Amino acid sequence: MSHPPLSHRPKNAREQLAFSLRRMRAERDWTQEDLSHVSGLDRSFIAHVERAARNISIDNIEKIANAFGVSIGDLF
């Protein structure tokens, strides 16, 4: 997995997760609603996570990783 240049990298884990979710959704041409459906999480929750506005549990990180078919580590 390639990473953005250091000057554009998110500052913390919450921002990194938000960046990864937006990127992975774009790569799959998924809407937030699509990710919501596949992960079993509410669309508004996905939106909050993508804005780095919510602290997310490891259980929900795992649901998102499973929805994308990646490991939890690939989200960071």
Rank of each mutant, 00 (worst) to 15 (best):
A13S: 10
K11G: 08
G69A: 06
A13D: 04
L75M: 03
V38G: 05
S39W: 03
A53T: 06
R54A: 12
G73T: 05
N66F: 13
S57W: 01
L35D: 07
N12D: 15
L41N: 05
V70Y: 03
E15L: 09
F45E: 04
V38E: 10
F68I: 04
I64D: 03
P5W: 01
F68Q: 01
S36R: 11
R9F: 04
I64G: 03
P5V: 01
A65P: 01
D59L: 10
R14F: 11
A18G: 14
S7K: 15
R43M: 02
S20Q: 14
I72E: 15
G40K: 06
L35F: 10
F68T: 01
G69S: 10
I64L: 15
G73F: 06
S57E: 08
D34S: 11
R9S: 05
I61C: 05
R43S: 07
H8A: 13
H3K: 15
E50H: 05
D34W: 07
A47G: 09
A47M: 05
P5A: 06
V38I: 14
R25L: 00
E50T: 04
F45Y: 14
L75V: 00
S44G: 08
R54D: 02
D42F: 00
P10H: 01
P5Q: 12
E33Y: 15
W30N: 08
I46E: 06
Q32M: 05
R28D: 08
V49R: 02
S44V: 07
H8N: 13
I56L: 09
L21G: 00
W30K: 10
S20A: 12
I56M: 06
F76Y: 05
D34A: 09
A13H: 07
L17V: 12
V49C: 07
I56V: 02
D59G: 04
I61Y: 02
R51M: 12
N12A: 05
F45R: 09
L21W: 02
